[in-house]
Design a protein around this nucleic acid. Structure first.
Lengths: 141, 141
DNA sequence: CTTTGGTGTTACTATTTAAGTTGCAAGTTA
DNA sequence: TAACTTGCAACTTAAATAGTAACACCAAAG
């Protein structure tokens, strides 16, 4: 688990639930598709439900999207599951005794924020519907 | 050290070297500004030198930028330092037995690539000169 | 109404990566 | 030569994610 796959797995879950709607969408079934374990899937599903992207019901495996896939963007999913909300990270420990160390953090905050905005703007352009459509096309091929 | 600060530290080094050109730009001095250790700084400086962004000399602390700061972009530094070169990571272990698991990787590869392009385009717009200018303004204030 | 199985949640363990550390050969200058 | 530096490699430490286990609670089926 070198890098975080939370975002990928969350999208995987949402796509799985939508594509196999009416079939078995239990955490165990989804876990086998992700090749992970049910507990991890339930944790992510819980976060997605809290972000109002997924509707779940205690005790019964009947998850479904909370809104049409076309109205769910990659950014919505990113915001639902990502903890740090940051793609780049400023070193929080620099010397206040040095002119550069004292000011570099706020300078980089500004710069990184611009990069973050650009990335998030692109994420906002991608809908879950597009991803599902792409998957369906590959499945049918 | 939960998140990587390599990029931030690399920019810190380049800015330090340029701002204190002619002064003490030893790895020990820079390390005290980053509040890290000289070995880590030398490792990063070595990577920057290999990427032709910094000129170093064995045995003597006389590092200097390899090109004018205006011609060094954040993207140049990012490419010199970042190991994975990826801001988002696709889960490489999904079930080939499942239609979704089998196809999700390539679908997400495409999507993540778009986000990466957007982020890198923004990084390309930021020059080291801008960062140094911003730092100098704060130092003089 | 009891059995079976799923969810929701928490706590814990394992793995992995970056950061920090140490050591030393080799280069440089006084 | 002496004192300092870089360059490089190996090792240790720390922190985040992934993986696992346990269990209370809920829901449908018999």
């Amino acid at each position: 688990m070198k890098y975080s796959h939370k975002l990928s797995d969350a999208i995987h879950i949402l796509a799985f639930v939508e594509i196999f709607q009416g079939g078995d969408v239990s955490s165990t079934m989804i876990a086998s598709s992700i090749e992970s374990n049910p507990s991890l899937v339930r944790r992510l599903m819980s976060q997605l439900a809290k972000a109002d992207l997924l509707i779940t019901r205690p005790g019964v495996s009947a998850a479904s999207l909370a809104r049409p896939a076309a109205t769910i963007s990659l950014l919505d999913v990113y915001r639902a599951i990502d903890d740090s909300q940051q793609l780049l990270h400023v070193d929080p420990k620099t010397s206040m005794a040095c002119p550069v160390g004292r000011n570099i953090q706020s300078t980089l905050d500004d710069v990184y924020d611009r990069v973050q905005q650009a990335a998030e703007a692109e994420m906002a352009k991608v809908s879950l519907a597009e991803i599902i459509q792409d998957l369906q096309a590959k499945i049918n091929a």
